[in-house]
Simulated assay, not measured.
Amino acid sequence: MARRARTTALSLLVAAAAACLIAQLLAPAFVQPKAPRNPETAVAPAVVGALVSLAGSMPAHAWKGPLAGSEVCVTRYLKWVIYPLCDPVFLVSPIYNFPILLAFFTALITLIQILIPATQPDEDLR
């Protein structure tokens, strides 16, 4: 009985494979895409995506840092700490961007808490 079930399952598998092969052979190989109405002004979506992704780093590539080309940017261990001053494209990197943003927002929040007394905790609630 187990042999009969295996034979039936194998027969169904072979029939399904044959049906897929026949469908593949009878189906058209390529579907022609619709041509754009004005090919001079048509822009491929991949080009738009590439330009959008490059737009974030363009300002950093245009401006060289204040220490660009100096000897301190070549020193091995010090360069890792001050490298955004040598090449600002690394400010996009989260490794360098997070500490700078953390320091900026910490200073901003501290300044707001000092200047606006309403942000201080209430003494009566302590």
Results as ranks from 00 to 15, higher is better:
residue 1 M to C: 12
residue 5 A to D: 13
residue 6 R to M: 13
residue 7 T to A: 14
residue 8 T to P: 04
residue 8 T to I: 14
residue 8 T to N: 01
residue 12 L to H: 09
residue 15 A to H: 06
residue 15 A to F: 03
residue 18 A to V: 04
residue 23 A to N: 13
residue 24 Q to M: 00
residue 28 P to E: 15
residue 29 A to W: 07
residue 30 F to T: 15
residue 32 Q to M: 08
residue 35 A to G: 10
residue 36 P to H: 03
residue 37 R to K: 08
residue 39 P to I: 06
residue 39 P to C: 11
residue 42 A to C: 05
residue 43 V to M: 09
residue 45 P to W: 06
residue 46 A to H: 11
residue 46 A to E: 07
residue 48 V to Y: 01
residue 50 A to R: 05
residue 51 L to A: 06
residue 53 S to Y: 02
residue 53 S to T: 10
residue 54 L to D: 02
residue 55 A to I: 00
residue 55 A to N: 09
residue 58 M to T: 10
residue 58 M to G: 00
residue 60 A to P: 00
residue 60 A to R: 00
residue 60 A to C: 04
residue 60 A to D: 05
residue 63 W to M: 11
residue 63 W to F: 13
residue 63 W to P: 01
residue 63 W to C: 09
residue 64 K to H: 01
residue 66 P to E: 11
residue 66 P to K: 12
residue 68 A to N: 09
residue 73 C to G: 01
residue 74 V to A: 15
residue 75 T to P: 04
residue 76 R to T: 15
residue 76 R to A: 15
residue 76 R to G: 14
residue 77 Y to F: 08
residue 79 K to F: 00
residue 80 W to Q: 14
residue 80 W to S: 13
residue 80 W to C: 06
residue 81 V to L: 09
residue 82 I to V: 05
residue 83 Y to H: 11
residue 84 P to G: 03
residue 85 L to E: 07
residue 85 L to T: 05
residue 87 D to P: 03
residue 88 P to I: 05
residue 89 V to H: 04
residue 90 F to G: 02
residue 93 S to L: 14
residue 94 P to L: 12
residue 94 P to H: 02
residue 95 I to V: 15
residue 96 Y to Q: 13
residue 98 F to N: 12
residue 98 F to Y: 08
residue 101 L to R: 08
residue 102 L to F: 05
residue 102 L to E: 05
residue 102 L to H: 00
residue 103 A to H: 00
residue 103 A to G: 04
residue 106 T to A: 10
residue 107 A to T: 03
residue 108 L to V: 15
residue 109 I to F: 14
residue 111 L to N: 01
residue 113 Q to R: 04
residue 115 L to T: 04
residue 115 L to A: 11
residue 116 I to T: 11
residue 116 I to Y: 13
residue 117 P to H: 14
residue 121 P to R: 11
residue 121 P to N: 06
residue 122 D to G: 06
residue 122 D to I: 11
residue 123 E to W: 06
residue 124 D to V: 00
residue 125 L to A: 08
residue 125 L to R: 07
residue 126 R to Q: 03
residue 126 R to D: 04
